[in-house]
Structure formats: structure tokens, C-alpha cells
Amino acid sequence: MSTPEQEAVGRTATMSDAMVEAVAHEMRADEEVFYMGEDVADYGGIFDSTTGLLDEFGRDRVMDVPISETAYLGAAVGAAQAGMRPIAELMFVDFFGVAMDQIYNQMAKNTYMSGGSFSVPMVLTTAVGGTYNDAAQHSQTLYGTFAHLPGMKVVAPSTAYDAKGLMHNAIRDDDPVVYMFHKRLMGIGWLPAPDGPKTPVPKEDYTIPFGKADVKREGDDVTVVTLGLHVHRALEAAEMLADEGIETEVIDLRTLKPLDRETVLESVRKTGRLVVVDEDYRSYGVTGEIISSVAEADLDSLEAVERVAVPDVPIPYSRPMEDAVIPGTDDVAEAVRSVGE
């Protein structure tokens, strides 16, 4: 999962620790960075996104706000326009609906609408994903919804190392960044993470540029493109498939906007076979975007293609039914086998 350089760091961290470390570093370095959201102060974020920040920075910089997403996301837009660098947490991405105007008409467009007079340097952090039986209104990733709309950058880390570097970059970026962290990757006690996301993480700050995918495993036979939790499911599948003699290349997109189409294309030119795995709905989403990008750029490079995603149904509460709709390791492996035939 991690490179030799990362291994040399000598300490590992959960994705939660890595995110918080980056936020704390930026808050120490820049008075203009502050964090607000629901239950982010005393509680430390219901998915451990702000653990310990209140103790170090106090209530003036780590703020619990009224349950009023339009107000505090709108206030973050205003504060960012006024020269601050707010980080505002939307507790679940599923709640975007109550404040979507502030997100996609205001946060994402005010730079354009002001003819560049103002920019909106804020980070909208939000918890995404299912796999823990939280039903249809608390389990979505909505990657495609956010990536579809112009004016905001969208990132979705899969490991602690990436989470930290992307967070540093997000806070320093002069544009609005939607930082989507998958609950299952955070390392929360009641929601055990797979083995992968806990990686070596350097103590010092570093950035991971946006628009740069990461090849998490190299292979010559089939390209699997994915993000978030499903990077780990794809890696598990790749491990199984290696025993069957299929070498899978696993590409972690890391940022959806800007999107690194080059890395994907380069891999498909090598393997000729593409599987895109997404924990978002099947239609009009990441899977369609990736496949059409490859088809548009180099149709001849594609010998076989398959997408693995959530069917276009609300994510069920029932455990077996949720397991059935969210792609599992076996689903990924099966798709890789099918394009390999």
C-alpha cells in the first residue's frame, strides 16, 4: 500500500489522524484558517474529523454552529471572500440538499460571478459512503454530483498519506475544495477500516497536487480505476486475481476535479482492458466519465470495458441488501475476469 519512502517514515497514522494533523498544521501556520461545523468542537466530529482541535485552538477557531447548513456554508463563503480560509464541515454529504444553493450556485460560482474580483478559498469537508447500514439518506458518496458542477475542486482520499497531503493542498488552494472523506476509512472504533488506509505518514507537512492519480498497484493485464474505499476493495481483488495469474493495475483517482485522465489513458493503452469501480450510482457518474474519456481520446486502445457501481436505487438499510448493491471485492474480481476473457 505504501511506497518505500513512506515506509521510511517509521510511524503510521489513521486517515483521521492524518487529516487532523494537516488541519492543525495549517491552523498553526495561518491565523485565517478556522474550522466550523456541527459537533466539531467538543465532540471532535462524529467521524473523528476534528479530534483534539478544540483543545489546541479554542472555541474561536473550532466552532460548533447552529444546525443551519445554509447559514454556515453561506457564512464560510462570505468569510472566504473576506480573506479567511474557512473549513466548513457538512456532517454527511447526503445533507447537501438543504444547502445546495449555497454550495453550487454561491461557493462554486462567486469567483466567476464577480469577474474574478473575489475568490472563495474554502474547504468543504464531508463524510461519504455506506457499508454500515445507515440507510438511503446517510450512505451516499455523491462523487458524481459534486464533480459534475463547475467551479469547485473535488478530492476523495483513500489512505492516510494521501489524506494529509490532499488536505494541506486543499487549505492552501485559492478555490473552493470539496474534501470527501469516506467514513469507513477514518479508523473509527465502531466502524473498522480495512487494513490499507492506515499508512506511514510523515510528521512534517507536504502536499499532493490535485489532478494527479496514483497507481496503487501495477499490472499489465487489466486496469481498474476507482477511488475512496473501493481502492482497497480493488487491491484485495487484485491480490486474489494474482493467484489466478491475472495482473491488475489499480489506479486511485484521488481527485475527481481536476481529473487525471492521462494516467488512466496511459494504463489502458498498456492493458487494453478497463474496469471502473465506483461507490456512487451507476448512471451519469464517475464510471461513465472515465470510460467516455478513454473512448474519446483513444477508442482503439479499448478492447474490453466494464463498470461496477451502485445500481440506480436508494441504498437499502437492510444489511444483506446494502451488501448486494455496494460493490464488493468479489464483484470487482468478477468484472476483471470478465474483461480478461
Binding site: E31, F34, L73, G74, A75, G78, Q81, A82, Q106
Partner: peptide, 20 residues
């Protein structure tokens, strides 16, 4: 041009000034 969308911004801008 949307209705009322600027109100939270004004609040945030004023709040930012106070924070600063």
C-alpha cells in the same frame, strides 16, 4: 440575483472581520 442567497454571505463577511 437568486433571492436571499447573499444574506449568509454578508453574515460570514462580517463574522470574518470580527474573527480577524
Amino acid at each position: 440575483v437568486p433571492i436571499a442567497s447573499q444574506i449568509p454571505h454578508a453574515t460570514g463577511m462580517a463574522w470574518a472581520d470580527k474573527l480577524k
